[in-house]
C-alpha cells in the first residue's frame, strides 16, 4: 500500500501516451523535446529544448524515455562546447526509468536506463551515465565524467562509492512504475 501522491488536475497536462507535464514547468522549444510516455515533468522544471545545434532543420535536443521523472525545479540543458572554433549545443539522450531528484541541474550527454539521480545534484556537461547507476543526493559530477553501470557515485567531485546490487534493474523498474501509478490527479471540485 503506497500513499498516493496527489496533484492538482488543473496543473498537469496529460498526453495520449500518459506523459504528465506541469503547466508550471518551462518547456522551451517543445518541438525539439521527446517524451517517451508515462513521463512526469514536475512543477518549476526547466527543459531547454530551444538550445539546439545551429544547423538548419528539425533536431531532437532532449529526449526522455518512458517512466521518467524530472523533479521540481530541475534544469535540463543540453551540453555545449566549441569544436574547431565553432560553438555548438549537443543533444541530450535519457533512457527509460530515469528519475531526476528535485533541484538538480543536468547537462549530461547520455543517461542510460534505470538511472537514479538524487536531489540537488549538478551533472556537468557531457557526463555519461551508464545503465542502473545512481547519483547520491547533493553530488557534483564534474564535466566529462563517465559513470559506469551499476555503480553509486557520491560527493563533490562525485566519485565511486559502491557497487549496486545485481537486482538494481528490477528494483528501479518497479519503483518508477509504482511512482507513476501513485501519481494521481485530485479534482478540486469534488
Amino acid at each position: 500500500m503506497e500513499a498516493p501522491i496527489y496533484y492538482s488536475k488543473s496543473e498537469f497536462i496529460e498526453t495520449d501516451t500518459g506523459n504528465k507535464v506541469s503547466r508550471r514547468a518551462t518547456i522551451a522549444g517543445p518541438q525539439n523535446i521527446i517524451l517517451g510516455g508515462k513521463t512526469i515533468i514536475s512543477s518549476g522544471a526547466i527543459i531547454r529544448g530551444d538550445l539546439r545545434q545551429s544547423r538548419p532543420g528539425h533536431a531532437v535536443v532532449i529526449s526522455l524515455g518512458r517512466y521518467c521523472v524530472v523533479g521540481e525545479g530541475c534544469v535540463m540543458r543540453p551540453p555545449y562546447k566549441t569544436y574547431r572554433g565553432t560553438f555548438n549545443y549537443y543533444p541530450m539522450k535519457i533512457g527509460d526509468h530515469v528519475h531526476v531528484g528535485a533541484g538538480s541541474v543536468v547537462e549530461a550527454a547520455t543517461i542510460g536506463n534505470h538511472v537514479e539521480i538524487g536531489k540537488n545534484c549538478i551533472i556537468g556537461k557531457f557526463v555519461i551515465i551508464k545503465d542502473c547507476a545512481k547519483i547520491a543526493d547533493n553530488s557534483i559530477v564534474p564535466p566529462n565524467t563517465v559513470i559506469p553501470a551499476l555503480s553509486l557515485f557520491a560527493g563533490s567531485p562525485a566519485s565511486f562509492a559502491e557497487d549496486l546490487p545485481e537486482s538494481t534493474q528490477e528494483l528501479v523498474e518497479s519503483q518508477t512504475k509504482q511512482f507513476y501509478q501513485s501519481f494521481q490527479p485530485l479534482d478540486r471540485d469534488r
Binding site: 500500500m1 503506497e2 500513499a3 501522491i5 496543473e11 521540481e72 485530485l186
Partner: peptide, 26 residues
C-alpha cells in the same frame, strides 16, 4: 505499511495539490 501513515501522507499531498502554488510532491 501503516494505514494511519498512508492516510496522513495522502491527505498532506492532497492539501498541497489544492493550494494554488503548492507543491504536488510526495
Amino acid at each position: 505499511a501503516l494505514p494511519h501513515q498512508v492516510e496522513k501522507f495522502g491527505h498532506a499531498s492532497a492539501e498541497a495539490a489544492k493550494r494554488p502554488y503548492g507543491k504536488a510532491a510526495a
